[in-house]
Amino acid sequence: MKISKENAEHYLWGDFCDGWQLVKQKELSIIHERMPPQTSEVRHYHRKARQFFFVLSGTATMEIDGEIIILRDHEGVEVPPNVPHQMMNQSDCVVEFLVISQPASKEDRVLTD
């Protein structure tokens, strides 16, 4: 079956952020997320999950273990397990990106702040 934002499972998170679960398996999760301007996720890490963040449109700011990385259209970054990180949209435009987690990260999240 073909999957898109129009037919994927949708959820809200944070400050008016959206997520669409494109692949939802125990060993693999792919989520299309949307962050309005000036929003952020809470800083956290995953015990087992390795994640890859890939920006589809906009400019995202990632803090990974104290290092700030700016991601623009069609740029991505990998975050290994046990590494604290935080996705932020510090711009004045919407950011859309993919989060690919292996294994799925839902039950694996540890807050750091």
Rank of each mutant, 00 (worst) to 15 (best):
G14C: 08
A49V: 08
Q51V: 08
F54K: 04
L98T: 03
Q38K: 15
L111G: 08
Q90R: 11
P84C: 11
R34N: 00
P81D: 00
F53E: 06
G76W: 00
T61C: 15
D18K: 01
C93V: 12
D18A: 09
S40C: 13
V95F: 05
R72T: 10
I68S: 08
K26D: 12
E75T: 09
M88R: 12
F52I: 14
M88D: 00
P36R: 02
N89H: 03
F16C: 14
Q102Y: 04
Q21P: 05
N7K: 02
D108C: 06
M62I: 09
E96C: 01
R109H: 11
N82F: 04
R47K: 14
N7G: 02
K2I: 15
G76N: 04
I100W: 01
W20G: 02
I69G: 07
D65V: 09
C17Q: 10
P103N: 02
A49N: 02
Q25S: 09
T39V: 09
E9G: 10
Y11N: 06
V79G: 06
V99S: 06
P84Y: 04
I64F: 06
L71I: 06
C17N: 06
E63R: 15
E41I: 15
F54S: 08
Q102S: 14
T61W: 03
V77L: 08
V55F: 05
T39A: 04
S91T: 12
C93A: 10
I68W: 13
T112S: 09
H46K: 04
D113W: 03
I3T: 09
V77A: 15
S29L: 09
E41G: 15
N7I: 06
V110E: 02
D73Q: 07
I64A: 05
R43W: 00
V99G: 05
R34F: 12
Q102G: 11
V83L: 12
I3M: 06
K106M: 10
F54P: 03
E41F: 10
C17L: 12
E9L: 12
A8N: 02
E63T: 10
V95N: 02
P81N: 05
L22V: 09
G19T: 08
D92G: 10
V95L: 01
E78P: 00
F16I: 11
H74S: 13
M87D: 06
A8Y: 03
T59W: 03
K26N: 14
Q102L: 10
E96N: 02
Q51G: 15
D73R: 14
E33K: 12
E67Q: 14
F16G: 15
E41T: 11
A60P: 05
V110I: 13
L12W: 11
N89G: 02
K24V: 11
Q86M: 12
V94S: 02
E6V: 12
Q90Y: 11
P84M: 01
L98R: 04
K26Y: 13
V42E: 11
I64S: 07
N82R: 15
M87Y: 07
S57F: 07
K48G: 05
F54Q: 04
